[in-house]
Simulated assay, not measured.
Amino acid sequence: MYLADQTWPELGDYVAEESVAVVPLGSTEQHGPHLPLATDHLIAEALAREAADRAGYLCTPTINVGVSTHHMQFHGTMSVDPPQFRDYVESFSRNLTYHGIDRIVYVNAHGGNMQHLREVGRRLREDEAAFAVEWMWDESIPELVSDIFEHNGPHGGPKETAMIMHIAPELVREDKLEAARDGGVVNLLDGNPTIHGARNYYDAIDNSENGVFGDQTDATPEKGEEIFEAATEQLVQLLDWLDDARFSDLMAKPHVDPQPGSRR
Rank of each mutant, 00 (worst) to 15 (best):
H75C: 00
L58N: 09
E170Q: 15
S262I: 10
G261Q: 12
N187Y: 00
W8G: 00
H70G: 00
Q237H: 11
N108R: 13
G197F: 12
R181Y: 10
L37D: 07
G100D: 05
D127H: 03
V65H: 00
I205W: 02
G211T: 02
Y202R: 07
G157F: 05
A48V: 09
E90Y: 05
I43R: 03
I164G: 09
K159T: 15
D218G: 10
R199Y: 13
R263F: 04
L144I: 11
L35E: 09
V120Y: 02
I227H: 02
Y2A: 04
A48Q: 05
F149D: 01
V22H: 11
Y57G: 08
D87T: 10
L96H: 08
H99P: 00
L25D: 08
L42T: 06
D218L: 14
G156S: 04
A109D: 15
G56T: 15
G211W: 02
G12N: 11
N113D: 06
M165Q: 13
Q6D: 04
E225V: 02
V80I: 13
M78K: 11
D40E: 04
G66T: 09
L11I: 10
V212D: 01
S248M: 09
R246F: 03
D175V: 09
E90M: 08
G100C: 05
I43W: 04
A38D: 04
M114D: 12
E134C: 11
A38T: 09
Q115M: 08
G197C: 11
V105K: 09
Y88A: 14
E174G: 01
L189T: 15
P9Q: 05
H151M: 09
D102R: 04
A180K: 13
F85G: 00
G197R: 08
E233T: 13
S79K: 09
A180S: 15
N152C: 10
H34P: 00
G211Q: 02
V236S: 12
L242F: 08
P221Y: 02
Y88L: 14
E134N: 14
G224F: 00
V186Y: 00
A21T: 15
A252C: 07
A219W: 10
R118N: 03
I167P: 13
R263V: 10
E160A: 10
Q237D: 15
S79T: 15
M72W: 07
P9R: 04
G66Y: 07
F131I: 12
R122S: 04
Q6P: 03
N152G: 10
E174R: 03
F85P: 01
E178I: 05
A52T: 08
T161Q: 13
M1Y: 05
V186K: 06
G211F: 00
